[in-house]
């Protein structure tokens, strides 16, 4: 028997397509955990402030670093920017030392970002004043700080 032509197949398939697909696992339990007793999601000020402070500090650090090392670069911007962010990163890791991370694989993600950092630094060896590479390096550092903050600041998406 001949196969129907594609247009007929597509029209028929779209007209008869069952838009419902059942998930393979029960998703309600996670949703229930996320919404239970929280019609208006609220976090207490005592738990929210340290996280907000850490995020604000990182954002400020990124802006300061971008200005210091990229917009108005001094000699050896790569070294300066690296030192600056290494310090920020270390202080975050110390801050969250005793707090459980939300996922097990965050260090793998961090490692991927560190590999990207290494690749950009290698490129900067040939072009140490390349503004695009310096900006990219700052972004990579910022992503590392964001990742560390994110995995230590539980949210409902982690269900």
């Amino acid at each position: 028997m001949n196969k129907p032509n594609f247009d007929d197949f597509l029209d028929k398939s779209l007209n008869t397509l069952d838009k419902e697909i059942a998930p393979q696992k029960d998703l309600w339990a996670g949703i229930e955990r996320a919404i239970v007793n929280t019609h208006e999601p609220k976090q207490s000020a005592t738990t929210l402030w340290p996280k907000l402070s850490a995020i604000a500090a990182c954002t400020l650090a990124a802006l300061v670093a971008l200005n210091m090392f990229v917009i108005n670069p001094k000699p050896q911007p790569v070294v300066a920017i690296s030192d600056y962010f290494a310090q920020q990163k270390q202080s975050l890791l110390v801050q969250y030392k005793n707090q459980d991370a939300l996922t097990d694989n965050w260090q793998t993600q961090l490692q991927e970002l560190e590999e990207a950092e290494y690749a950009i630094k290698q490129a900067l060896k040939n072009e140490p004043e390349n503004q695009a590479l310096l900006t990219m390096l700052a972004q990579i550092y910022q992503q590392q700080l964001d990742l560390i903050n994110k995995v230590h600041a539980p949210r409902w998406q982690s269900i």
Partner: peptide, 13 residues
Amino acid sequence: EDAAQEVFVQVWH
């Protein structure tokens, strides 16, 4: 699965 959960959490709010 993650996105579908996210939908129902956000719709609740």
